[in-house]
Design a protein around this nucleic acid. Sequence first.
DNA 1: CTGTTAGCGCGTTCAT
DNA 2: ATGAACGCGCTAACAG
Lengths: 354, 354
Amino acid sequence: MRRSKAANLVTIEDIARQLGLSPSTVSRALNDSPLISERTRQRVRAAAEALGYRRNELARALTKGTLRFIGLLIPDITNPFFAEVARGVEDIASARRYGVLLCNTDESLAKEQQYAHFLREHQVSGLILTSPTVDDPCVQELLHTGTPLVLVSRITHVSEVSYVCTDDVQGAILAVEHLIRLGHRAIGFIGGPPEVTPNQRRLQGYRQALQAHNLPFREEITRHGGSFTQEAGYIIMKEYLQLNSPPTAVFAANDLIALGAIEAIVEEGLSVPEDVAIVGYDDIPFASLPGVELTTVAQPVYEMGALAAEYLLDVLEGKRRKRLWKIFRPRLIVRKTCGAALARGRLTSNQADQ
Amino acid sequence: MRRSKAANLVTIEDIARQLGLSPSTVSRALNDSPLISERTRQRVRAAAEALGYRRNELARALTKGTLRFIGLLIPDITNPFFAEVARGVEDIASARRYGVLLCNTDESLAKEQQYAHFLREHQVSGLILTSPTVDDPCVQELLHTGTPLVLVSRITHVSEVSYVCTDDVQGAILAVEHLIRLGHRAIGFIGGPPEVTPNQRRLQGYRQALQAHNLPFREEITRHGGSFTQEAGYIIMKEYLQLNSPPTAVFAANDLIALGAIEAIVEEGLSVPEDVAIVGYDDIPFASLPGVELTTVAQPVYEMGALAAEYLLDVLEGKRRKRLWKIFRPRLIVRKTCGAALARGRLTSNQADQ
DNA sequence: CTGTTAGCGCGTTCAT
DNA sequence: ATGAACGCGCTAACAG
């Protein structure tokens, strides 16, 4: 007895039989092969339509050795930054008939590895990573498999790897110099996951800016919450507020952290920007809300995702070979969490600038 | 010459050959078949490990007729509500070794259909829908294919379909009655996509609440922005503000719309809640931000996604057969966009309550 | 242009 | 407990 076929599936053979053709001819017709007569193509198309034929992409992928899926590894889709990246990726992918597999890693190596295996086992054609330490052995393994891959927002030292990101060092400098210009001298930093490149580079920019303006670097107001979340920002800010001389301004490694910090400040009965000024990073949509109006550093997030996908698919389809190294320029968005440019600011900053 | 195999792939045959076994034995060993000796199992596992074997899920899916993927159709991952649903779904799915395919539909029938085809062609095992009008013929087609499916947040009249949602009629009543209790009599509604069930039910609750309190229903302050976005809320609110007698309070069909409305109000130099009170729906994380503090109706979003996934996978694995009809209870979260319960409110509401 | 043959990698009878 | 043979649906190689 025949194996019970998967739910009443119309195959290429069915239509071949009905038309008295061979399966290969039908296959060719369906794939718009040049070596097929217009008439057969028509007939095949018609019959396919009539029978309700749907191509089995799995079978196709089996012979081709690759599935038209790309894996999207991000820490957390719940973070608006990554949601926006995802949107960019998905828009491009779906337009080009690729599926995108959502993989949340929570910055956890274990999850990352689990997914790396999963993706490999499913022969996905390519990867977009916003999460991993690319030095992860499993990712390396995928790389060796030949699976093309592009990093978004994160960068790496593995030189063959493509990436698209924003100049985070520069972005941080923009942010901190803005604070300095406003007269702040005790400027703190609240970081996310310390091991992650965007965090590192923002920290680096922060230090450079301080140094350039002869401002002291203070360990006790340069802390990491461990993740890019509101809770992280909230907790660290609370701690800063207990200090003998708390910072008068804080540069947060991303907007979520900034928002959490603001929460902490308000909860202590203080206010932003009067008591402490805040700058965030990313310019997530909610940063512009009335009542929030967070001063922040913007990245072209959607474009970054879209560009990464565009490039990746080009590579997959053999339209490109060179690697992509794209660095967008960050933009400072001045809103209300740092106060206006006050006179006191002018003075101090001139003094520092000399 | 042999077909060039996909990137240096270790197959079941390779390990069979090396061990002097047959492929079938290896297959069985790998799948923990009961009819295999412990010793062979060990040897096979070891060899597999040594050779770096990775099962080809595609080949497997081809014979099984189904891939361990589920399709997640949502309007827009950029909306925090859906991001949260997605997170719930993904957490469960990945724990059970299923992949989740991200499909943004923008509430567009065309995109929905394109994805329905795509998913079918890839033999995904099941679907979670937060987007479609299930009456969509393509979705119907998928249903007929036998693909299990569960609706989140949306409901339908097709009786065999499973769903998990919140009682939106009740939620809307909660919201509007809160407003009434505060003394408002001119309460407007700003809807999202009119054709979508959660919107319809929230509208229905709105009307019921008005009616129950003998408040007039006014067409001109019951409008739809067409989508669940800030822009939609912004635009409609601006229009309301042009009216001769604008509403003193607005119930928005979701938080994004509410946020957009607030933006419009503030931009007109008015303030919330003094000039117009606002209630939203969903309780997205940003609703609780200091400076925002939106009064809203909460749904257990993450749980809804997780439950839907849990149920779907149970069905796929034959552990369940009955359909799931789960309706969560909404909760009113009172924050600051409606003002405190004022004396004026007490009076009017008692009067209305009689 | 079209048909025939032969796999892709795996799981599954049916034997033994 | 193991092996041989076959098929899942499709595409590529080789004939004509």
